[in-house]
């Protein structure tokens, strides 16, 4: 059985599990991270952690800073302020570069190369190249090794790009909108291929996406950025459990006064029906119907209310004490 080397569940793991191969360093750690393009801050004052072994969705509106963050982690950009660490090292160090694979939105492949030549290039450029994994990913997609990359369909190109990324044996895989141009069937196939490689290698994944509903069963960690700042970071389950969706029949648009003691993310009034997404700060009083929100509901509420108080779970926070170091 191919047990992955990552164990995000903590010390209470059952017997027979392979211990984490890490020194415990998070896959990503940002401290006061900022990046400016001319006068525009694409990212600013970002403090968060992504623990190793997670599959993390990076969400936010267009222009929120998602690609900037991925590019900083992939060492394609340098921070203007603060710092970013990949498994404890700066992205520009050789150790880091060897541990990170990045698949950009345009999936840069050479159209004139055949698939086999593309894989050979990957082997030449990467000392730790895992040819078996790369070939397996291509073969599972029924892609001919002699086909020119320029003639492949969108799904096939994505698969070849994924093969090149996994051939690097990355510990952290960065994916920028990997599925955006694919039809649902191909998305399912690519996701299944991605998940089985993650299961085998224990890879940490950070992927930006707009397909929130499809990420529900895929991602166990969440990083939401709006306006260049971190709004939500942490385990999907923990974040969802920290919220309550209240609804009742009301006419007041401000919401009844008994919500004042809670963090109100968003409210909505449809006819006489009033609903609110809150982070309870104690017992919720009043006659409400209560639900735990779904991931999509939660993200849409936060996207509608970009100024709401950020929420970082314990594992996503960086200690303030180390900040000065």
């Amino acid at each position: 059985m191919n047990e992955p080397a990552h164990r995000p569940f903590g010390p209470d793991d059952g017997p027979g599990r392979i211990a984490a191969a890490d020194d415990g360093a998070p896959a990503l750690e940002a401290r006061g991270l900022g990046h400016r393009f001319r006068k525009h801050w694409a990212l600013r004052d970002c403090d968060f952690r992504l623990p190793a072994g997670r599959i993390c969705a990076l969400v936010g509106p267009n222009g929120a800073g998602k690609t900037t963050l991925l590019s900083l982690a992939a060492d394609l950009l340098e921070p203007t302020r603060g710092r970013l660490r990949v498994f404890g090292d700066a992205p520009s160090t050789p150790a880091s570069r060897g541990r990170v694979a990045f698949m950009g939105q345009r999936k840069p492949l050479y159209p004139g190369f055949t698939v086999a030549e593309m894989l050979r290039a990957g082997r030449e450029l990467n000392p730790d190249w895992d040819h078996a994994t790369a070939e397996r990913l291509v073969r599972q997609g029924d892609i001919s090794f002699t086909a020119k990359v320029g003639t492949l369909s969108g799904g096939q190109r994505t698969r070849v790009a994924l093969a090149l990324a996994f051939g690097k044996r990355p510990r952290l895989l960065l994916l920028d909108e990997p599925m955006s141009d694919l039809d649902p069937l191909v998305r399912h196939e690519i996701t299944a291929a991605l998940m089985s490689e993650v299961a085998e290698h224990g890879t940490t994944v950070l992927m930006s996406t707009h397909m929130v509903s499809e990420m529900d069963q895929v991602c166990d960690y969440l990083l939401m950025i709006t306006g260049g700042r971190v709004r939500l970071a942490g385990e999907v389950d923990t974040i969802l459990a920290a919220h309550t969706l209240l609804s009742s029949r009301h006419r007041e648009t401000d919401g009844p006064p008994d919500l004042a003691s809670h963090i109100v993310v968003s409210t909505k009034t449809v006819g006489e029906h009033f609903s609110a997404l809150i982070r309870p700060q104690g017992p919720v009083t009043g006659r409400w119907a209560r639900h735990e929100p779904g991931l999509e509901e939660l993200l849409i509420a936060y996207l509608r209310a970009p100024d709401s108080t950020p929420l970082l779970t314990a594992s996503a926070r960086v200690e303030a004490s180390e900040e000065a170091a």
Partner: peptide, 21 residues
């Protein structure tokens, strides 16, 4: 195995480990 499950279902392998645990 987790790998077999996720190859067929496209879910997060951590979910399979959690269920097995």
């Amino acid at each position: 195995t987790a790998r077999e499950v996720v190859a067929a279902t496209a879910i997060n392998p951590n979910t399979v480990h959690k269920a097995y645990r």
